[in-house]
């Protein structure tokens, strides 16, 4: 039996290693290309690694940014994604608490109705949503990306699943001591829900950071754009300078990557408690 285990570990390792190579090559190729000079890239045929490592692509984008508002885009994306994440965390944790712990008329019906709307594809409401954003005077503003994202249902579902694993006796004890619903929520449930909230934060932040179709519709002012549609503009502007584009792509990746490093350790734990999903 021991031997069997060892064998399966070797097979698993080999399999993962092959996949890992496929996964890592584009990344490494992208990173090293962003350190090649344009001249080297386009004149000296194919070489995986740079002959001369240069920082010019990054300095061009970040320092000589008169022509490319990359800094603006980056800052815009930061403000949008952080605000959206905070709003979602507040809204979602409050709702999930109510759907899991509190009793009110029509609770289950309402919750299942919300779940059913998840099936509804978001394409249907893009055109009217644009009109609503326009009526609110939010075209070309960050609000257009911060608020609508909090309408989602998936995260409530995820957090509720997680909360349902917290023993009800915790609340009951507190209630005996005269704690209000809000106190129970804030002092007892919220701290215990932290792991899944990290995951929600990661999902929301990356979702907001990476959203592409929606911002390319609601923004037409180049300075006000977030970075994801900005990168596509960059692609049009610098189509002949792929090394510069690569540098832009990797700058755009940094924040989500850092957040992931923080949230990673909560990942499996939250998923195993939440993902007991029943379709």
């Amino acid at each position: 039996m021991r031997k069997n285990k060892l064998g399966s570990r070797i097979i698993a390792f080999t399999f993962l290693l092959i996949l890992a190579i496929i996964w890592v090559v584009p990344l490494i190729w992208g990173i090293v290309t962003s350190f090649k000079s344009e001249a080297e890239f386009s004149t000296i045929g194919f070489k995986f690694l740079p002959i001369n490592w240069v920082l010019t692509n990054y300095t061009e984008l970040l320092v000589n940014n008169a022509s490319t508002p990359l800094f603006h885009w980056f800052a815009n994306s930061m403000i949008i994604s952080v605000s959206n994440t905070v709003l979602v965390l507040i809204v979602v944790s409050l709702s999930a608490f109510a759907y899991d712990r509190l009793q009110f008329k029509g609770k289950n019906a309402l919750f299942y109705f919300l779940l059913a709307t998840m099936m509804f594809p978001s394409v249907v409401n893009i055109i009217p949503l644009y009109k609503i954003i326009d009526l609110l005077g939010w075209v070309n503003t960050k609000w257009a990306m911060i608020v609508p994202g909090a309408a989602g249902v998936f995260n409530i579902f995820l957090v509720r699943q997680f909360m349902s694993n917290i023993p009800i006796s915790f609340d009951e004890a507190a209630r005996m001591d005269g704690a209000s619903d809000f106190t129970i929520f804030r002092k007892i449930i919220l701290p215990l829900t932290k792991p899944v909230l990290y995951v929600v934060a990661l999902f929301t932040f990356t979702g907001s950071w990476n959203d592409f179709l929606w911002p390319s519709i609601v923004f037409n002012d180049i300075d006000k754009m977030p970075i994801t549609p900005g990168l596509q503009l960059l692609q049009g502007m610098y189509q002949s300078q792929p090394t510069l584009l690569m540098a832009g792509a990797f700058i755009a990746i940094v924040p989500t990557f850092i957040l992931y490093l923080f949230a990673q350790k909560y990942f499996l734990q939250s998923m195993s408690l939440s993902a007991g999903v029943k379709g």
Partner: peptide
């Protein structure tokens, strides 16, 4: 991109 301008004008705001 340009289709946004008509809606803005029509709503009479933010021009």
């Amino acid at each position: 991109m340009y289709t946004k301008i008509p809606t803005v004008v029509n709503s009479g705001k933010n021009i």
